[in-house]
Design a protein around this nucleic acid. Structure first.
Lengths: 111, 111
DNA sequence: CAGCTCTGCAACTGAAGGGTTGCACGTTGC
DNA sequence: GCAACGTGCAACCCTTCAGTTGCAGAGCTG
């Protein structure tokens, strides 16, 4: 299973700087140094973020001579979205069933 | 603006214990004390998690006499899922355009 | 070849946050 | 009314992590 656990992916997305990086990489693939020039953090910090993002599949990197070009992987985000949507729907379904039970005209249930 | 920023919601989902809590609350609404009995953390810790989850709209709470019953809000998760899906699609679209440009037989384009 | 750029790794700092214990207060129930 | 349960708040540890600086190596470029 290449897909990491849900909390891990969400944690990767739970940082403003990483979203900044992802947004840039979603608009235009570029290197860590290029990112460091437009973001208010050091190149090394960006490197760490990129590693986190790569580990959860949100970023893919390609060596290009002496530089490494990174790109945001929309498909991974889509996969996460589908997972979350599925879970959200299940919650709603369960809640609906509970409400139905509660509104049953017979509170007599001996359970 | 009731919807918190994306990184904040994702950060709320970026913790295994909170997912545990959400899963339980998605299956069956219950109080913090009830959660503390089935989870390996203290009631106070769970209270903090519930506050975080409530602030991003993933949990709703209802006072019920001396206890407070919490429930997971599937709709919020669904809303997040839609947002992520939209962003993911935009990344894919941009990437596709870039690839098309790269494969054009004439890199002559002056912007 | 020399110099510049891009990259990765290591050590360090400071703040954020998950977890705990202790305490005080309102609510239920015998 | 008193005990028990459920809750909220505050103080406190300790780990995690975002960010920094410094250094050494690999790859372009002139």
């Amino acid at each position: 299973m290449t897909a990491p656990a849900l909390p891990v992916v969400c944690a990767a997305l739970g940082d403003a700087t990483r979203w900044e990086i992802l947004t840039r990489l979603g608009e235009d693939p570029m290197s860590a140094s290029a990112l460091a020039k437009v973001l208010p953090v050091s190149r090394q910090a960006i490197g760490k973020h990129l590693e986190v993002l790569r580990e959860v599949g949100l970023v893919e990197s390609e060596q290009r001579g002496r530089e490494v070009v990174h790109v945001a992987v929309g498909a991974r985000l889509g996969a996460l979205a589908r997972e979350l949507d599925r879970i959200g729907r299940s919650w709603e379904t369960r809640l609906l069933r509970i409400k139905e039970l509660a509104e049953r005209p017979q509170p007599d249930a001996a359970d």
